[in-house]
């Protein structure tokens, strides 16, 4: 038996809106420790992982682990019927073929689950989520890829298009900066990665979920773009960097 109740449907709506461009169908794996989701985009270049902690819900009951395969567009369509401050309840019985209230069909999705190490990145930048979103959107009008370079001074975004180049440098702020404006850098060594902008732009759909975004980078590893939610834990996006052939 699974029972989840959230008094702010808006939060779940925001979570769904932030992932449904990237992934069409996904398994919500619910356990006593929380609801998690891990899914790759259709081209298998990007991936997301999401954790919704039990204490983020007003009521959370999960008697045994259950994996609910859902079509995210359908789920979003149903949740659109709820106002942001409405209460949403998700029940799934052990038959596992529907969630009641919404009577939405569940799907059987075979997906590969990957073990993702959390630590050991060469550079970790925290910056305002809205600033990162604006940079990605602006650069997306110019080029297809962006080179993100982190040094101890700051983070640089460089793109090249058919007709012009663009270069944005965000300097690390002082420790006294206000949280919503702060840019902090933890770095072992400078890192520079080239990434497809359309995926980064898709990740920034999660901007309404958090004030700050954490960008973790290492040479030769997927970049991690993490949004930490106030009450629900996190959503992380992974993207494989482009390499010169």
């Amino acid at each position: 038996m699974l029972e989840l109740r959230l008094t702010r449907a808006g939060l779940l709506k925001k979570v769904l809106e932030s992932i449904r461009d990237l992934v069409t169908d996904a398994n919500f794996d619910c356990a006593a420790t929380g609801c998690s989701l891990q899914a790759m985009d259709s081209s298998r270049v990007a991936m997301l992982s999401l954790l919704l902690r039990p204490d983020g819900f007003e009521h959370y009951r999960c008697d045994r682990n259950i994996s609910m395969g859902m079509n995210l567009a359908n789920m979003a369509r149903m949740l659109r019927c709820a106002s942001d401050d409405d209460t949403v309840t998700i029940n799934a019985d052990d038959a596992q073929d529907k969630i009641s209230d919404y009577e939405m069909k569940l799907m059987h999705i075979t997906s590969e689950n990957l073990e993702i190490p959390e630590a050991g990145y060469e550079a970790i930048v925290k910056m305002p989520a809205s600033l990162f979103a604006r940079i990605c959107k602006d650069l997306g009008t110019i080029g297809d890829t962006v080179m993100i370079s982190v040094t101890k001074e700051g983070i640089q975004f460089f793109t090249r298009g058919d007709i012009r180049t663009a270069n944005i440098f965000c300097r690390k702020t002082t420790p006294v900066a206000k949280e919503k404006e702060a840019i902090s850098i933890e770095m072992e060594k400078p890192v520079s990665l080239t990434l497809a902008l359309r995926y980064l732009i898709s990740f920034t759909k999660a901007t309404p979920l958090a004030k700050q975004v954490t960008i973790s980078m290492s040479y030769g590893r997927p970049i991690v773009v993490e949004y930490k939610m106030e009450i629900m834990d996190h959503i992380r996006f992974y993207l494989v960097p482009k390499v010169e052939e």
Partner: peptide
């Protein structure tokens, strides 16, 4: 020319 690899190359299966 730039090459794009798939993400599962970078992580082990659970």
């Amino acid at each position: 020319k730039q090459k794009q690899q798939v993400i599962s190359r970078f992580f082990a299966s659970k």
